[in-house]
Structure formats: C-alpha cells, structure tokens
Amino acid sequence: MTRSIPRTTALLLGMSIALAACTEPARPPAQPMAGANMTDMPMPDGIAVDMAAVPMYPGSTMIDMKIMPHEEDDMTGMAFDSPADPATVRRWYIDTLGAKGFMLKEQGTTVVGTDPAGNPVHIDVKPAAAGHSTGVISKG
C-alpha cells in the first residue's frame, strides 16, 4: 500500500500536534528545596523534606535508600559506603549528631538512640573492602 506525500505529511502533522497537546511543562515545587541539599526531595504537597534524616560521614556515598513517606518523621533507611574504618565512622556519628541534640551510644557495630524529637535512630556500621566501612542509617 502506498500513500501520497500530502497524506503522509498531514498524518505526521496531526500526530505531532496531538503529542504536543499531551505534554505539560515541569512545574517547580511550591517551596524551594531547603538549602539546596542534595537529599532534599519535594513531597506531593510541594514541601521539601530532607530524606537523609541525618548527615553522612564526610566522603561517604549513598548506596541505597528506602522511604516510607507518610509523614516527615516516618521511617527512612539509607545504606552508605564510607572511606574510613567502622570505629571512626561510629565515633563521628556519636559526636556530630550528639552536638545536634541526638542521644546516641555505641552497641557493638551499631550506634543506637534517639533524635532530638525522641524518634529512634539506628546506625549499623561494618567493615568493607579497602579500609572502608558500609552501613545503614535507620530513622523512625
């Protein structure tokens, strides 16, 4: 079956117009991300929430994140790789977060306690290859 050039052109033009009508430009969030933090994520209501819940040890890389986003203080879990041994990373969390009102203590390979609002915090840090450590921060 062959089509004429004008008919094919009309078909392509019609499809282009239909597709253009289906696209909607991206809308910026109602509120800008707080401090332009890379872990801030705009929620459906447009408010930015810091999804990391706690800072990461300097030079760390986020490996995975699990979120139960019903409320701002709901459960989050973030896996990371840090360029330091586990004892150094655990001590850094106790000192750094303690200065921000967290109540934490070390229990074996884990740092446990509460955030300033009294919500549970659990940071498990274990050895990894090349002198690194890997861990999971859980909040909520």
Results as ranks from 00 to 15, higher is better:
Ala48Gln: 11
Pro127Lys: 07
Arg90Tyr: 00
Ala10Trp: 10
Phe102Gln: 01
Ala52Met: 13
Leu12Ala: 13
Thr23Met: 01
Pro55Trp: 04
Pro58Gln: 06
Ser82Tyr: 05
Phe102Met: 01
Ala99Asp: 13
Ala87Ile: 05
Asp73Ala: 11
Ser138Met: 06
Pro42Ser: 07
Met56Pro: 01
Lys100His: 14
His70Gly: 15
Lys105Ala: 15
Thr8Arg: 09
Ala129Asn: 14
Val111Ile: 03
Val111Cys: 03
Ala21Ile: 03
Ala117Gln: 12
Gly35Leu: 02
Ser4Asp: 10
Ser138Glu: 05
Phe102Thr: 00
Met38Phe: 07
Asp64Tyr: 09
Gly35Tyr: 00
Ala117Met: 13
Thr109Val: 09
Leu19Ile: 14
Pro116Cys: 09
Cys22Ser: 11
Pro69Met: 13
Ala21Gly: 05
Ser133Ile: 13
His70Tyr: 11
Gly77Val: 07
Ser60Thr: 08
Asp50Leu: 08
His132Cys: 04
Arg3Tyr: 11
Arg3Phe: 13
His122Thr: 04
Gln107Ser: 14
Val136Gly: 00
Phe80Arg: 10
Ser60Cys: 08
Met56Phe: 15
Ser4Ile: 08
Met68His: 08
Thr76Trp: 09
Tyr57Pro: 04
Gly77Ala: 12
Gly113Val: 06
Pro86Leu: 14
Gly113His: 02
Lys105Asp: 13
Thr2Ser: 09
Ser133Tyr: 08
Lys100Thr: 13
Ile47Thr: 14
Val54Ala: 14
Lys139Cys: 01
His70Pro: 01
Gly108Gln: 04
Asn37Phe: 04
Cys22Ile: 04
Ala18Ser: 02
Leu12Trp: 11
Ala117Cys: 02
Met103Trp: 00
Arg27Thr: 15
Gly98Asp: 06
Met38Pro: 14
Ile63His: 06
Asp50Ile: 12
Val111Met: 03
Asp64Ser: 11
Gly108Val: 04
Asp74Pro: 02
Ser133Trp: 07
Ile47Gln: 03
Met56Leu: 15
Val111Tyr: 03
Leu12Ile: 10
Pro42Gly: 06
Ala18Tyr: 01
Pro120His: 05
Asp50Met: 07
Ala84Trp: 07
Pro69Phe: 12
Ala130Phe: 11
Leu13Ile: 11
Asp50Gln: 10
Pro25Arg: 05
His70Asn: 14
Pro44Gly: 12
Gly101Tyr: 05
Ile67Ala: 07
Ala10Tyr: 09
Arg3His: 10
Met15Pro: 01
Lys139Asp: 00
Pro25Ala: 06
Gly131Leu: 13
Ser138Thr: 06
Thr9Met: 11
Lys105Arg: 15
Asn37Cys: 07
Leu19Phe: 14
Met51Ile: 12
Pro58Ala: 02
Met68Gly: 01
Ile63Thr: 15
Val54His: 03
His122Pro: 00
Met1His: 12
Leu11Lys: 09
Leu97Asp: 00
Val54Asn: 02
Ile67Gln: 10
Ser138Cys: 00
Asp115Asn: 15
Val125Glu: 01
Pro32Phe: 02
Pro6Phe: 08
Pro6His: 04
Ser138Arg: 10
Asp64Thr: 08
Thr114Leu: 03
Asp73Ile: 06
